[in-house]
Design a protein around this nucleic acid. Structure first.
Length: 577
RNA sequence: CGGGGCGUAGCGCAGCCUGGUUAGCGCGCCUGCCUUGGGAGCAGGAGGUCGGCAGUUCAAAUCUGCUCGCCCCGACCA
């Protein structure tokens, strides 16, 4: 490709709206342009990167035995009603009407459509296992799109769906995808971590997220320093502390009510009573589909609403309104406590080992001290209800946990029979019995993967693409376009490299060298061949590596072998990342 | 949806508070000269219904109302 013929509009200045580094650089490098909030066009350079990522995905999906299909983006409401997601999905689902006022949606994902195919085509256990995947544009009407291509409304996604006869088969399909994903992100040159995750709206029994480690990541991930435990913060658990030594020894004091005028928050109350936050139990009232429940959490801990929801089997749990708190506890918010409550009380495991703690007295301006379980408080159930925090220990091995930030680029789910049951996708087993197909689904955010690579690999001059997903592997820069010898050599090297299947961009613009160098750095091409007058007189050209600025001068006749060796080395390097 | 903010040339911004000639600046773009190993220099030039609609006024980018779009923080989410 010749630069002069490529639509590659680079910008010197950062666009005002771009906040995160990948957004800024994709914009400045002429990869993307915004069309509307959360909706982008990909310009040629951006598309090249997307296609490189897609190619790696296709190769690995095919290797894992998956078959590519193409599904519709506009889907009939009926299918979504059958799975109940027409109601459940909420406002993220972009609903549209056709000219006959029939309801459709723009597909945010494709479980319904693929399950529809499965129920029509799969009859027998002999036809499984099967795995279909598609790479296409989806739409989720995000409340607030942000971070450029990382969190958009319209986005390119690879989704795969597996169909098995039973859980054992699903386990195998899931494992294959786990391995394929590991290969995909490794081949893209990314540093990532696989974490246990929540299943969320998609539903299902088990799930892992593939997280690219980056400061700007939206997700917090927790991982063990010594074993391989790693989980999304939403899912992460901490080792349960046994009855603490200090608690075990402590004398149980008599319950006492104390005045706490105007002290509502954990901080205010503990400061006023001169105790530590971990000596207080906060009582949080929740409104759920199962009715109102009270939860008991150690003062310095945070409730994890999704854990509570999972425990109760509810899709939605909502912190009670001030009015409801008043109704349930008889006191305004800030004075709730478990003593005398008539609703179901669920305690976090950490509370189980506490003695002589502080709680609200269900009475304005009053708290109890020396509260104890059993004697004063009846807890219906203990469970893991809290967020893991710094200092907690690994639930598997007891060593310390690390906290880091990640960008979710892939997510795999064991769906089970949720959709096959709803859409009645069944098959006949060996005994002629009708059974539900067991499904899994597996997604990768394609553009997000490219953006994550930029978050991970950039410097103050621009993008530093990993070789396998770089839009071009090499850029050829003649320093002075007015000197014929330089241009001729550049052309010659360009042709040689093209003929040897190297992806090369020839900067044939009549610009000053500074401009060409700056653009080359900005768009992040891994290797630059610089052709300057002095070197050329000695029959030499220079090769510069974007990632470390390292330059080597070689005889121009050896250019093809030198470049090939470097490409090979960098591709291999990312495989071992 | 709540809170904050922004819409002026392709991009980044000033002007608005305190209304008044031809609406500026930097980058980019066009022409010419010159220059060529890290976003050169000089000269000339093109490009704006100041987001839209309505109002106040002799007069609106500037004041008022409505509206549309966008950004940031939060709740939500891949």
């Amino acid at each position: 490709m010749r630069y002069s013929q490529l639509m590659l509009p680079t910008l010197k200045e950062d666009p005002a709206e771009a906040e995160v580094i990948s957004h800024r650089l994709m914009f400045r490098a002429g990869m993307i342009r915004k069309v509307a909030a959360g909706i982008y066009s990909f310009l040629p350079l951006g598309l090249r990167v997307i296609q490189k990522v897609e190619r790696i995905i296709r190769e690995e999906m095919n290797r894992a035995g998956a078959q590519e299909v193409l599904l519709p983006c506009v889907q009939p409401a009926e299918l979504w009603m059958e799975s109940h997601r027409w109601q459940e999905y909420g406002k993220d689902l972009l609903r549209i009407e056709d000219r006959h006022s029939r309801d459709y949606c723009f597909g945010p994902t494709h479980e319904e459509v693929i399950t529809d195919i499965a129920r029509r085509e799969i009859r027998s256990y002999r036809q499984m296992p099967l795995n279909f995947y598609q790479i296409q544009t989806k739409f989720r009407d995000e409340i607030r799109p942000r971070f450029g291509v990382m969190r958009c409304r319209e986005f390119i996604m690879k989704d795969a769906y597996s169909f098995d006869t039973d859980e054992v088969g699903l386990g195998k399909s899931y494992q294959k995808m786990y391995e394929a994903y590991t290969r995909i992100f490794t081949r893209c040159g990314l540093t990532f971590e696989v974490v246990e995750a929540e299943t969320g709206l998609i539903g299902g029994t088990a799930s892992h997220e593939f997280m690219v480690l980056a400061e700007t990541g939206e997700e917090t991930i927790v991982s063990c320093q010594s074993c391989n435990y790693a989980a999304n913060i939403q899912k992460a658990e901490a080792k349960r502390t046994r009855l603490r030594a200090r608690s075990a020894k402590k004398i149980i004091n008599p319950l006492k009510k104390v005045e706490t005028p105007d002290k509502k928050t954990v901080e205010e109350v503990t400061k006023f009573l001169k105790v530590m936050p971990e000596d207080l139990v906060k009582t949080l009232i929740f409104e759920t589909e199962q009715g109102v429940v009270a939860t008991l959490i150690q003062g310095d801990h945070e409730i994890n609403e999704s854990k509570l929801g999972n425990l109760l089997g509810c899709d939605e749990v909502k912190l009670a309104s001030d009015d409801l708190v008043l109704e349930v506890t008889g006191a305004p918010k800030g004075y709730a406590g478990p003593i005398g409550l008539s609703v179901k009380v669920i305690g976090d495991y950490a509370v189980e080992s506490m003695v002589n703690f502080v709680t609200g007295a269900n009475e304005q301006d009053a708290h109890y001290i020396n509260v104890n379980l059993g004697r004063d408080v009846k807890v219906d159930q203990f469970a893991d209800l809290r967020m893991v925090k710094e200092g907690d220990l690994c639930p598997r091995c007891g060593k310390s946990l690390n906290f880091s930030r990640g960008i979710e680029v892939g997510h795999i789910f064991k769906l089970g029979t949720k959709y096959s049951k709803a859409l009645r996708a069944t098959y006949l087993d060996e005994n002629g019995r009708e059974r539900e197909i067991v499904m899994g689904c597996y997604g990768i955010g394609v553009a997000r993967t490219a953006a994550a690579a930029i978050e991970q690999y950039h410097d103050e001059d621009g993008i530093i693409w990993p070789m396998p997903i770089a839009p071009f592997q090499v850029i050829v820069v003649p320093v002075n376009s007015k000197i014929e010898a330089l241009m001729e050599t550049a052309e010659e090297i360009y042709r040689l490299l093209v003929n040897n299947a190297v992806e090369v961009l020839l900067d044939d613009r009549d610009s000053s060298p500074g401009v060409k160098f700056k653009d080359a750095d900005l768009i992040g091409v891994p290797l630059r061949v610089t052709i300057g007058e002095k070197n050329l007189k000695k029959g030499l050209v220079e090769i510069r590596r974007r990632k470390n600025g390292e330059t080597t001068v070689i005889e121009k006749d050896r250019i093809v072998e030198a470049i090939s060796a470097l490409i090979h080395e960098e591709v291999k390097g990312s495989l071992h990342a």
